[in-house]
């Protein structure tokens, strides 16, 4: 791959991850924050894959996609859903 295309791809992935992380902090409804956190984990897994580390990418994918999302959703079910100031 050409050098400039690699750099553009890395930069855009990092900016998308930053956007998702800001959203995860700002949303008041906690279910939306959990979905934004799953998006951040997805971008991190693509970045690890792009830097030629498939073991780490597979670990991040399996933990961030299913397990963390489901555990947070169960915790929201047993407490309140909207965060109040």
């Amino acid at each position: 791959m050409e050098e400039s295309l690699e750099q553009i791809l890395e930069l855009s992935l990092t900016l998308l991850m930053l956007g998702g992380a800001v959203c995860a902090c700002v949303f008041k409804d906690l279910l939306n924050a959990v979905i934004a956190a799953a998006f951040v984990s997805l971008m991190a897994a693509i970045l690890f894959y792009f830097l030629q580390a498939p073991d780490v990418a597979m670990a991040e994918a399996s933990i961030g996609a299913a397990l963390t999302t489901a555990i947070f959703v169960i915790a929201i079910k047993k407490t309140k859903r909207v965060e109040e100031e």
Partner: peptide
């Protein structure tokens, strides 16, 4: 071509995350 396992993991596991969110939204978890 050994990197294709990572795509397989994602294709399987995101279904489970979507099922968890959907079961919460219909109040059945």
């Amino acid at each position: 071509y050994i990197y294709l396992d990572v795509a397989l993991v994602y294709a399987v596991l995101m279904f489970i995350g979507s099922v968890a969110i959907a079961r919460f939204l219909e109040k059945g978890i």
